[in-house]
Design a binder for these strands. Structure first.
Length: 192
DNA sequence: CTACCGATTATCT
DNA sequence: GATAATCGGTAGT
């Protein structure tokens, strides 16, 4: 299975956000049986977050202990904890001229290990399993231990593989933020 | 050390 | 549509 390499992530964050649609997020889940289980979903919705040009981004005010991954190498996972109960997962990506950047994964369409994911989050059907940034991390058991993990390595517990090619993509303002709402940096696969 | 608040979700009216 | 749940990061004292 081929997968995006470093140069894929070394472009403007918004371009990468759009390019990640249709790719597959793969989680190798170690359940103690000795045989890793594969959990995977097609990326259906993303949002781009920049640096000093983007007041809505964690990186806007400069590097801190939390967001340092956003300033590091591209193609890594940036996982953070929010609202005392949810994790959100990002993929670091930025043009070489930019200091920081990441793409928030907002929703997935589960395709592998669906039974296991349903067990994690009490969801009843495939669609409601990972249709939100906090829900998909719960469905795939993603937490801060995955912060900084290399997503371009297929041996990682978390990585990206090539998936489908979206036929139609739409962009809208981002969700759940109070600043820089004028930027249309949210991308999602549209129904044909 | 203390206080405020957020890239969310489930649940209630 | 509105709000509680719940806690780590960040800024300010």
């Amino acid at each position: 299975m081929s997968q995006p390499r470093l140069d894929f992530y070394s472009r403007h964050t918004a371009i990468v956000a759009k390019g990640l649609l249709g790719k597959k997020l793969v989680r190798m889940y170690e359940d103690g049986s000795g045989q890793p289980k594969r959990l995977a979903g097609i990326i259906y919705e993303t949002e781009a977050y920049g640096s000093k040009n983007d007041p809505a981004s964690h990186a806007f005010k400069g590097m801190t202990s939390r967001n340092s991954v956003m300033f590091g190498e591209v193609g890594k996972a940036y996982v953070y904890f929010i609202y005392g109960m949810h994790h959100c997962m990002n993929i670091t990506a930025r043009a070489p001229s930019s200091k920081a950047g990441a793409v928030l994964i907002r929703s997935l369409l589960p395709v592998e290990g669906i039974d296991i994911m349903i067990g994690f989050c009490n969801a009843k059907d495939q669609l409601s399993l990972a249709n939100g940034p906090g829900k998909l991390t719960k469905a795939m058991d993603i937490n801060r231990s995955h912060n900084g993990i290399n997503l371009t390595d297929r041996n990682s517990a978390l990585h990206i593989e090539d998936g489908i090619k979206p036929k139609k993509v739409i962009s809208t303002p981002r969700i759940g933020i109070s600043r820089a709402t004028e930027k249309c940096w949210r991308y999602m696969i549209a129904k044909e």
